[in-house]
Write a protein that binds this DNA or RNA. Structure first.
Lengths: 123, 123
DNA sequence: TGCACATATGATCATGCGTTCAGATGACCA
DNA sequence: TGGTCATCTGAACGCATGATCATATGTGCA
């Protein structure tokens, strides 16, 4: 026992995460670890988009975009719906949306500390 | 223009994320995409821990753990503090903590849908 | 001061992941 | 029904990332 018992009274009494969930969670985070996919999701925050649009926004090829969307869909990060000959994607649920918001807020906050006096929306 | 203009009225009027932030965010998510590092963070949710403890909890070597913590610290996901000859790590801020909570809730929710009637805390 | 413990670091190697290309599937329209 | 558009799929290549080993730093204690 190195640090005797330093747990200074559980600050929120979080339930110990199921290992099974941790693995799945790691996969989901892995999906979010690509700037391209992040751009896709950022675009999807504004509403449903077809693959071609998303590809254009993310600056990637249709093929790459389709690959990415497939992965995101497999992990329930996005949902797909056919409309004619095109497929419209959207963010799967409120959790994902909130996750992105919190994450963006974090990096914004972190950068605000790193570069004081320089706003996120700097013109 | 493929999907004419389907944005069905911005559901929340999210500010368009700064590309710079997206890159940083992708890096942070990348750090969270490893089950081992996730175990470290899960352990840190319960309070400060030294490297040795964290290594034991995560089932990794001290060296690997140190490497991981270095990365996490570089991206302000965790903070470090010396106490004698050991270094105590903790989660950097409330954002990260919230991020983990939301993410865990997401995978829990997703699995609850996938396996109905099977609780997260299944014995 | 010298030893032992806790942590940090640097280099190397294997593996996974993203991208791309080529081709397949499926839906609309004339 | 043939043609075209939008998307999907499979395979191969190149790069980045994680793990490991050996070693360095730094702190407390006798």
């Amino acid at each position: 026992m190195r640090s005797d018992d330093h747990s200074p009274a559980p600050e929120d009494a979080k339930p110990p995460p199921v290992p099974e969930d941790l693995a799945e969670l790691a996969s989901v985070f892995g999906l979010l670890s690509d700037p391209g996919r992040l751009r896709l999701l950022a675009a999807l925050r504004e509403g449903e988009r077809c693959v071609g649009d998303l590809a254009a926004v993310a600056g990637a090829s249709d093929s790459a975009t389709s690959h990415h969307l497939r992965l995101l869909r497999a992990h329930r990060v996005v949902q797909a719906r056919r409309r004619g000959r095109m497929v419209l994607y959207r963010i799967a649920d409120a959790h994902v949306r909130l996750l992105l918001d919190v994450a963006l807020a974090h990096v914004g906050h972190a950068r605000a500390i790193a570069n004081p006096g320089r706003e996120s929306r700097s013109a």
